[in-house]
Design a binder for these strands. Structure first.
Length: 528
RNA sequence: GCGGGCGUAGCUCAAUGGUAGAGCGUCAGCCUUCCAAGCUGAAUGUUGCCGGUUCGAGUCCGGUCGCCCGCUCCA
């Protein structure tokens, strides 16, 4: 098999176009920028909104476009919009306070960095003197290398039965000085374990004391879990159902990289879908397939999109028997030939609700009146349980980036040299209206048509008009901005009330009636 | 955070330690009846930022910020 185009696009060229055409700017650029933050310009802001709106429409307002769930019933999803700052106990319950503070160890010799809790140390049994050798947990090569170095140091052939093992984090400062790093030759090159807090910290209230510490949310998911009981109590939803929200999340990444792919401030689109434990595998399969299909339909239909099931050893311990976890991945120019994650679909069991129930003391169990054994009157007695959760969690900014990369289409045969092949549904500019020349009554007709299209389609994106310079230059500009259709008023329009429609992807034209333009565009935008 | 590379106009790039430039794009006017045509004109830079060496720094040195690559990280 051959991939004709996937790896050949230049990320530098795509970034240059994003800047040039107003899709993405570096945040605080006039002050020299700030690492890991990006702003969207006019076209980027609308593109991002269109993608978010498409998700909202297809998830919340018309779930899965009407496709029934595995139970044969309509899929039910309701939205919430929770705060970026929550009670800090939320993040203790979710495990983020612990998990986002992984101590790291650096090796001064090899410049490698390791998670401190992933390193083990070996010494000769019954001989605690001299050097200690560190190796990486669950890594046979690293273990063998350390054993070999220890054998050479002790001048005798040692096997795994001849050694004592302990965690690196259990070593004293004195012991660390005589410890040889996993990839090092000399002892004492490892630093003390240092904490890296990946959550942004802030203070609630003006006094800013340590008692007032709060965190910017590192994911939107927990805002859903903490509102589970509220939603069940105040709306008429019943399990199985989902709660969805979009919003910003913040992670103090060690190394922001690859344009907007790993940013410190980013936007997520998340669903937490609650179902009975027995139904979880079927719902997992359902969402996994639906989400893959959605990304394909939104414009990532090429061979740069793939679904990857996580291997068993990647799975969280609770994910094994409810389906599993899978990522929708896109082959970005900077990951090629590999892929980068767009969305994760994870089986989370009842882990999150259970954690919040334990930490908060709230009763989060759901009483399901459709289950349980039948009473004498034939009605089910009901069943009380913590619902299990399937979580499709997508990165909005990553989606935008994938769409930008996929749309970027070099074409030496056209004036612009490149055009942006956006799916009409997400294209930030929906249409453009041009008078062929800026005289002879054409501008007036164009202005009238433009005003009509703005009224009818302006809520979906920009409707452009432009009478300056040559028609070829205007088409070229629209190619780079990814406008799918250009309507041109020419001399014939004045005689027979027809206009030309130029198709961005083929650069070919057809004539349609002036009063049919609205219907034409509606059909092309999929809102006929 | 570590190592390497890079930083000049919106973009792509010039400029031996000696007056900061070009092409494209942008804007204005003229012209123009279908794909960046042509003509005329205009705007745009504390050379990322701060400091040092020098009579003189875009150029050399130090620091800092940012971007790219490799580590690390990616809950």
């Amino acid at each position: 098999m051959t991939d004709a185009t996937p790896n050949t696009k230049s990320m530098d060229d795509i970034m240059a176009l994003c800047k040039r055409r107003g899709f993405v700017y570096q945040a605080s650029e006039i002050y020299g920028g700030i690492n890991g933050f990006w702003d969207y310009g006019p076209l980027g802001a609308q593109l991002k909104k269109n993608l978010r709106d498409a998700w909202w429409q297809d998830i919340v307002m018309h779930p899965c476009r009407g496709k029934p769930g595995p139970d044969g019933k309509p899929v039910e999803i309701v939205p919430v919009d929770s705060c970026i700052i929550q009670n800090p106990k939320v993040w203790e319950a979710s495990g983020h306070v612990g998990g986002f503070n992984d101590p790291m160890v650096d090796c001064k010799e090899t410049k490698n960095r390791y998670r401190a809790d992933h390193l083990l140390c070996m010494g000769m049994k019954g001989d605690s003197t001299g050097q200690i050798y560190a190796y990486i947990e669950n890594n046979d090569d690293s273990f063998a290398a350390a054993l070999k170095k220890l054998s050479k140091y002790k001048k005798q052939e040692l096997t795994k039965d001849d050694i004592d093992i302990c965690a690196l984090t259990a070593l004293s400062t004195e012991e660390l000085v005589v410890t040889v790093g996993p990839d090092a030759k000399e002892a004492g090159t490892l630093t003390e374990p240092r904490a890296f807090n990946l959550m942004f910290k802030t203070y609630v209230g003006a006094t800013a004391s340590e008692d007032d510490v709060a965190y910017l949310r590192p994911e939107t998911a927990q805002g859903i879990f903490v509102n589970f009981k509220n939603v069940v109590d105040t709306t008429r939803v019943g399990v199985p159902f989902g709660i969805a929200q979009t919003g910003k999340a913040f992670r103090n990444e060690v190394t922001p990289r690859n344009f907007t792919f790993r940013s410190r401030e980013f936007e997520q689109m998340e669903i937490e879908f609650f179902c009975h434990k027995d139904d979880a595998p079927a719902w997992y399969q359902f969402w996994r397939d639906e989400r893959m299909k959605w990304w394909q339909e939104i414009g990532l239909g090429g061979n740069n999109l793939q679904m990857r099931e996580h291997d068993a050893d990647e799975l969280a311990h609770y994910a094994k028997d409810g389906g599993g976890a899978a990522d929708v991945e896109y082959r970005f120019p900077f990951t090629a030939p590999g892929f980068g994650e767009l969305e994760g679909i994870a089986y989370r069991s009842d882990y999150d609700l259970r954690q919040h129930a334990e930490h908060s003391g709230a009763k989060l169990e759901y009483f399901d009146t459709t289950r349980g054994e039948l009473a004498k009157n034939g009605q089910p007695k009901g069943e009380r349980y913590l619902p299990h959760v399937i979580e499709p969690s997508a990165g909005l900014d990553r989606g935008v980036l994938a769409i930008l990369c996929e749309a970027y289409t070099p074409d030496p045969d056209r004036a612009s040299g490149v055009f942006m092949k956006f799916h009409p549904r997400v294209a930030p500019i929906k249409a453009a209206v041009f008078p062929l020349v800026n005289k002879d009554g054409m501008p007036e007709v164009a202005a009238t048509l433009h005003a009509e299209l703005v009224r009818r389609f302006g809520h979906l994106g920009f409707i452009e008009t432009d009478a300056k310079q040559s028609i070829g230059k205007r088409y070229a500009r629209m190619d780079e901005a990814g406008c799918p259709y250009c309507f041109t008023i020419d001399g014939d329009t004045l005689n027979d009330n027809t206009v030309t429609v130029r198709d961005r992807d083929t650069a070919s034209q057809e004539r349609i009636a002036l009063d049919a333009v609205g219907a034409f565009l509606a059909e092309k935008l999929g809102i006929g």
